[in-house]
Design a protein around this nucleic acid. Structure first.
Length: 354
DNA sequence: TAGTCCCGCCATTTG
DNA sequence: CAAATGGCGGGACTA
């Protein structure tokens, strides 16, 4: 963080102004936000998993925007279907965890695999191992659970079990669940999922909201504008977290325990899920920046590029008072920070974190 | 107590 | 080698 960074600074910028790399250093950002650097990585990974961001290289991220989400989800869904086909029969869907990794995963999707320069072949084993345990993969698999199954509600425990396959020591489970919390917090912030609890058991669980189209899990085709477009008037209040949903900004009262009941159908049907999950590979392929062009789904009327508008309002100053709303706030702040970066950096220029 | 998730050590990966 | 990343899990905090 901080200081000197080798990478080329200005150059590519269209911005005559100073594209001050230093000002965009992750370290500085973290300081300003009062956030630990380590946290950022988690968030970035989740965002990248759903297409909002793309890592181009070390210290280089490209903001894709919310409009990229539909496309990413679509990809995930197809990928899941593909996996389902190939690996299904095996009653026990594999497990990612547990020592034995294997799977040739990593490359089912389209190009873009983590854009890892090194070819795949070599150190693949170890890499795969890492990859398999990555928050990014977990995020995608978690999302697949929702978009590929008919489960209405999924508790993190169930998700962990499903994603872990059979073998799960309580220890591994615990860790997995911790990660899922990390992920769920970010996804919740984006309103892609929401927390509730099963009707029967009062067990906490999450419901997929997706792009907020009607219930159907078919994320890819319904109206509603692209996720996150048109963000406007945001206003946070203590204990309230603003979230943008389809253009509108909604505030969820921190612990909204209201809607709970809704859940009716929820119930995890493990069996029916197993196959659908399996590792995947990241494969995003959205258009360049904001792409509203991404095979977007709905008629997202406005181009995400412009979703920039009110991001400023997202700013709001207040240090994240961790505890609970932690990631959520952090996320908001981060969005704001990025937004400013974005505007400064001009169109396609990659952002340099640090 | 179960559910959350803060916090940061430390192993890896990269440039 | 230093900096950037990120897996991982102990344990504090809450409801």
């Amino acid at each position: 963080m901080s200081s000197s960074c080798p990478t080329n600074p200005s150059s590519s910028t269209t911005r005559p102004h100073t594209y001050n790399r230093k000002q965009k250093s992750l370290g500085l950002l973290c300081t300003k936000l009062g956030v630990e650097r380590r946290r950022i990585y988690d968030i970035v990974n989740v965002l990248e998993s759903i297409g909002v961001l793309a890592r181009k290289a070390k210290n280089q991220y490209t903001w894709k925007g919310y409009a990229a989400i539909p496309g990413a989800l679509h990809e995930l869904k197809e990928e899941a279907l593909r996996e389902k086909l190939e690996g299904s029969q095996g009653v026990n869907a594999k497990v990612w965890d547990d020592e034995d990794d294997d799977e040739t995963l990593s490359n089912s999707g389209s190009q873009n695999d983590k854009s890892i320069p090194n070819s795949d072949a070599p150190k693949s084993h170890k890499n795969d191992n890492r990859r398999e345990k990555s928050l990014a993969l977990l995020t995608q698999n978690f999302v697949k659970l929702f978009i590929c199954s008919n489960m209405e509600l999924i508790s993190l425990d169930d998700a962990a079990k499903l994603l872990l396959g059979d073998a799960h020591s309580s220890s591994i489970m615990r860790t997995k669940v911790r990660r899922l919390y990390d992920i769920a917090n970010v996804l919740s912030s984006m309103n892609l999922i929401e927390k509730t609890h099963t009707a029967d058991t009062r067990k906490p669980a999450f419901r997929w909201l997706g792009l907020n189209e009607n219930q159907s899990s078919n994320v890819i085709n319904s109206r509603k504008r692209a996720f996150g477009t048109d963000i406007s008037n945001i206003d946070f209040k203590r204990n309230k977290v603003g979230v943008f949903v389809n253009g509108e900004f909604s505030q969820k009262p921190m612990k909204q325990k209201e809607l709970e009941h809704v859940s009716g159908l929820g119930q995890v049907d493990k069996s029916n899920l197993k196959h659908c999950t399996k590792q995947s590979s990241r494969s995003y392929q959205f258009g360049p920046f904001a792409p509203a062009s991404v095979h977007k789904v709905g008629p997202s009327e406005n181009n995400s590029v412009k979703q920039v508008h009110d991001w400023d309002s997202l700013a709001t100053v207040h240090r994240p008072h961790y505890q609970n709303e932690a990631l959520k706030e952090l996320f908001s702040h981060y969005m704001e920070a990025w937004k400013s970066w974005y505007s400064e950096v001009a169109e396609k220029k990659p952002l340099h974190i640090l």
